[in-house]
Design a protein around this nucleic acid. Structure first.
Lengths: 211, 211
DNA sequence: GTCTATAGATTGATAGAC
DNA sequence: GTCTATCAATCTATAGAC
């Protein structure tokens, strides 16, 4: 694809730069330069820099959320059919695996994962609100499922532990493109598949910790 | 203290705004306005905006690291005296508790914790490098201690799980001043002391998960 | 739809009086 | 040390020709 659509080229360039440099440290000139389009094209196609960010996020998060929702619902339905509570591990797998597998879904998807991995710690209210709004339905589904899987935990404790889970997960999503703690004298980071498996084990054990 | 030192007022104002709005979204005029000092004062006292950020971080992280280092070394020495490996829980306590207790160490310390909580996911290389450089010695001490506490884990797995730990911890540090997932229909977040205890339990279980 | 040109605001930094 | 005034660069956004 030597010459994609102008809108697409802008989205791709913005995704890359927002992920790499952060929203406020990315200029329209940087985006249009990388996309090889005219400076005015962003405002023509998207209206503003803020609106462009929303478009960047929504383009990918809608299909991602659909996958996560389907997987979560499959786990919940199978458990219901078997007359048993769902397993915490399967629920977490349904939430986490598609998110990181999404990275291989195409060029730029990697940047996107880093971008939304940072969204939870993003200082800018606009960015965070957009992300949370998009993820909220999935998060509720996960919360309800885990409540059945771990009935001994109070709502408050479960939410707290789920926040730690989100923290560990976002950190891994950020670290994908840019090694965060890869330093001389420390071992090489794991490959992605093993990393995901480790993350799921880690948060499973954490969620199931004794009270 | 109605009128602190000019340098101190600048540091306090910058800390607050960097934590709240992010480094690139904070202007010198915003800082000097809040500090009620002249615009030129920042460059006179610190040289540049970048140098101001370093000063903001170093002012607090040096005493914090000293506390963490002392606590870690106490745990390690007691274990050595008893001829036993240190306990993972005690090591994590020594690392985590002072960090969050630091919030109560004075006005503004809370902002600082949010600031360094976000540092790991910070896109800006300058910010992240400064933070990592400061934390590295403590991190190495923690890594070595956990290696003794959990000898069945390979270096690679231990590092991976320690990264998840840092992720959960940073997320909690960010969330302190600004509720991240506190939404209608969800329970109230825990109080700080209970939250810290929960975090320690969570990451302990995660680190000790079967391979 | 794409371009040039530019408005209009804001930025970090500095020179020089006091 | 603190101030005013300002530079030079950069930013987002838009008007208007093609």
């Amino acid at each position: 694809m030597p010459q994609a659509d102008t809108k697409t080229r802008i989205l791709d360039a913005a995704e890359k730069l927002f992920a790499r440099d952060g929203f406020h440290n990315t200029s329209m000139r940087g985006i249009t330069g990388l996309a090889r389009v005219n400076l005015a094209a962003v405002n023509y196609h998207f209206g503003s820099k803020d609106a462009l960010l929303l478009a960047v996020i929504e383009r990918r998060i809608v299909p991602l959320n659909q996958i996560r929702q389907e997987k979560l619902q499959t786990v919940l339905e199978k458990a219901q059919a078997a007359g048993q509570p769902p397993s915490a591990r399967q629920l977490l797998q349904a939430f986490i695996e598609p998110t990181l597998a999404f990275r291989s879904s195409g060029p730029g998807a990697e940047d996107f994962i880093a971008l939304i991995g940072r969204a939870l710690s993003e200082p800018d209210e606009t960015v965070r609100a957009c992300f949370i709004q998009q993820v909220l339905p999935i998060f509720k589904l996960l919360f309800a499922g885990l409540h059945q899987a771990l009935p001994e935990l109070s709502d408050q404790i479960l939410l707290t532990r789920l926040q730690f889970t989100m923290g560990a997960m976002s950190h891994m999503m950020c670290a994908s493109t840019r090694p965060v703690l890869h330093l001389p004298g420390f071992p090489e980071p794991l490959q992605e598949t093993e990393m995901v498996a480790e993350l799921i084990s880690f948060v499973c054990s954490g969620l199931e910790a004794p009270c």
